[in-house]
Design a protein around this nucleic acid. Structure first.
Lengths: 195, 195
DNA sequence: GTCTATACGACGATAGAC
DNA sequence: GTCTATCGTCGTATAGAC
């Protein structure tokens, strides 16, 4: 493992990550060459390799960044709200808004086949944000707010519906912005598990 | 475009497709070399190129084959049953069983990012099987069996839940065979749209 | 620390014998 | 129609100047 040198400009690093997010979601990881990245970020190959060990490391960093941001958002929701009902509602609202404001990020984090290019990264289903979302449900079951049932089934019910909307939206099958559907979707989703 | 020569052995063609299904779902399309395919199918590179123009053509053929099989199954269900209730139930049952008997096929057809390696193939959301599934719902709404609502929302409700279970199953988050959950999932899913 | 130029390996695809 | 051997390309990564 090579040691990287000082990184005075966090800005350059972000530029690279931003370029990769765009490219990976449009062309895909394998169809994106380092030369593409260089061009999109408007720097040189040498600089790319000054900030990252290799192309894979960029993808890992990108996944980690986005994953952490989303996990943080979920953790904050758990702090800010104290019922499973309110937490899940806020989580779905957050995901819907993200899909509109940063579809590329949602695409990369939920839709990309990470196992194909990130060998050791766990599949998204077992990643931190979704684990936190399942935790909201587990606590709701414990408190009696949600009817007694298998946590996985509960998570499929509450989050499967909105996640399906997100996927259809990212695929342009759904044309209107997702927040339009928020309350409708929420009522359907919550009704399946409400005690 | 090159013309392919006679194909006396349909068997060899299938061997290649089978090998690719295994490899594409485990290693991914881009991490699978033609040499891998040759080895897995126990033939020579020359033979691979006798049956297919190039590597991409194999992926296209594979997607078409699997897509057609699934579309046929959905079309048969529409013929065999005459209510939206029974049709959707049968569709989900079929998908759950497929996930257990041929997880690789489900993985490839639902989970793979086809747009990354199949430029012109439409995303799975707009593919024939899912279109037929949405059609079941449209007719159910027309007949009054399903409450009046947006078709896309209805499809997210009825199929989003089981599709989420399928994804979690393919990711090994769900450990028990899906048919175990069939009736539970079905009741939750149908309850969201039943008139 | 950023650049340009280049080495090197891998892989898709073809040529040509049998 | 199946094989082996090989070609050409492309893309990652490095070397080395500034």
């Amino acid at each position: 493992m090579k040691k990287k040198i000082a990184h005075p400009s966090q800005e350059l690093r972000n530029k690279i990550l931003q370029a990769c997010l765009t490219l990976f979601t449009t062309k895909g990881y394998f169809c994106t060459s380092v030369d593409d990245i260089r061009r999109e970020a408007q720097i040189s190959v040498g600089s790319v390799y000054n900030y990252f060990d290799n192309k894979e490391a960029i993808a890992v960093a990108l996944f980690d960044d986005l994953s952490k941001t989303m996990a943080k958002a979920m953790a904050d929701i758990i702090i800010d709200y104290d019922s499973a009902h309110d937490r899940c509602h806020a989580a779905i609202e957050y995901l819907f808004e993200c899909t509109e404001t940063n579809p590329a990020a949602m695409h990369f984090i939920f839709y990309a086949k990470h196992r194909e290019f990130l060998p050791e990264v766990k599949s998204i289903c077992s990643s931190e944000p979704l684990t936190l979302m399942r935790q909201m449900l587990t606590e709701g079951i414990k408190s009696g707010e949600i009817v007694e049932m298998d946590t996985l089934v509960a998570s499929a019910c509450v989050f499967g519906i909105p996640l399906r909307m997100i996927r259809m939206r990212l695929d342009d099958v759904v044309c209107k912005p997702l927040p339009t559907y928020l309350e409708t979707i929420w009522q359907h989703a919550w009704s399946t598990v409400a005690a």
